[in-house]
Every structure is written in C-alpha cells, then in structure tokens.
Nucleic acid binder design. Sequence first.
DNA 1: CAGAATCCATGTAGATACTG
DNA 2: CAGTATCTACATGGATTCTG
Lengths: 122, 122
Amino acid sequence: MLLRHPHITEDCRAVSEILQRVGDKWTVLVVGKLGDGAMRFNELRAAVGGISQKMLTTTLRGLERDGFVTRKVFPTIPPRVDYELTELGHELLVPVGALGEWARKNTNRVREARAKFDSQQA
Amino acid sequence: MLLRHPHITEDCRAVSEILQRVGDKWTVLVVGKLGDGAMRFNELRAAVGGISQKMLTTTLRGLERDGFVTRKVFPTIPPRVDYELTELGHELLVPVGALGEWARKNTNRVREARAKFDSQQA
DNA sequence: CAGAATCCATGTAGATACTG
DNA sequence: CAGTATCTACATGGATTCTG
C-alpha cells in the first residue's frame, strides 16, 4: 500500500458500510441516550423524542442484531424491557463521538458553504 | 452539563445529521478517492467503481454544496472537470478515517453477533 | 408496557436516452 | 467528456390499529 492516505483508501467499503449502518435517522440518537446506562423502551422513546414506536423497535432490533445493545425482558405484568449498550456498543461511541465533535465544530462552516452555493445558483 | 458522556449526549442531533450526510451509499467512497488528489469525473467514476453517472453527479454536487469539494471546469473540447477536496474536506477525512479504522477492526465482531442473532431467531 | 401488523407517503438509487 | 432528463423500483419512515 503505497498510498498517501492508507487509513482512508484501504477498504473504503467497510467504512461506507458502518456509516450507512449508523447513518440512519435514529441509530446514533438511541445509542447516545443508552450511553448513560440501561433504559426501558418508553423511557428511551421519551428521551430520544420524536421517534415512533415502530422506528424505535426497528432501530433497537438492528442494534441488538449487530451486538451493540442487549435486550433484557422481565416477564412481569405489565412487561418491562431494558436495553443496554454492550462493550462493543460503548466502543462504537468513541469514534462516533469524535465525528460528533467534528460535526459540532464545523456546522457553521458547512452552513456558510451551503448558503454561498445556493445563492450562486440563482 | 453534568452528564457522563457530554461529548455524545450534547447536541446529538448534529451528529446524526452529518452521519446521515456522509452515510449515504457513495459519499465516503468518493471523498476517500479524492483524498489522494484532484480527479476528473470519469476518472473518479472508474476509481469508485459501480457508481452510476447520475449518482456520482448527485454526490459531487452535494459535496460541493457543503464545501467539501471544489469543482473546476476547463472550457475545452472535450470538456474537462476536476474535482478536489477543500481544506474542510480534508479535515472531515480525519474523524471519518477514525471511524473507518474502528469499522475495519470490528467487522468480525459485528458479523459474529449478527450470525448468532440470526440463528437464535429460528 | 412493549410490542406486532398493516398501510401509505416520501426519498433514494439505478437504468436508459439524449446533449453541448 | 461530462453531464441533464426521465422513468421506475425499492427502501425508509410515519400513522394507525390491535394485543399479550
């Protein structure tokens, strides 16, 4: 590998895949909330805000399937289900957090570039 | 902010937004290729591989709009258009690269979790 | 409470054909 | 060469209804 950016160019597809995985509308929001500890379904729903029941279920199932989240069912009445980040889930938070930090710092630069571009399109 | 993961929980929406921005099918692939220097349209198309004309145009326009890429047109015949990463584009490569590194290291763990989950679903 | 199931609107991506 | 325009297929997301 005699490329200038081996950390980027080498197997770029793997990057693209996890970015698509965590790049949907709710995943990082849910993982972010779970970063502070286990939560119940509706507790999580309220914390995230604006997410439908169906999408929270879908998102959590996906995260569970990929090993980022554990699902613990308490067979009580009414039922109680706790969701918690796995070790893998916590580890994912590190690079995602770094990207998030970058995002917060550069939101304005993107916004400005966008405004400039849009005005030039006339 | 007295949260345990302020770098994650604080304005999680901004993270979600750029993740959706770069989390489409082609963006990181294109940015990754451009990481090594300027390229022409069809050169980039061949380098990425599998991308349609339309999607490359769409992806590049989006990147240009957000200030990640510059578009330089040479009014020759046949026409020539060079695309190149901006400073902002290069900076974006840093956190994205980190996430990519994480992705490559943990692809197997995700794959295993997935296989386990799927087998348990009967 | 925590979902499953269904239906529907929208967005995203690809194929194809045409052009300065 | 580097696009634009159009059409179509499929995936994503939301609203609603029902249930153990």
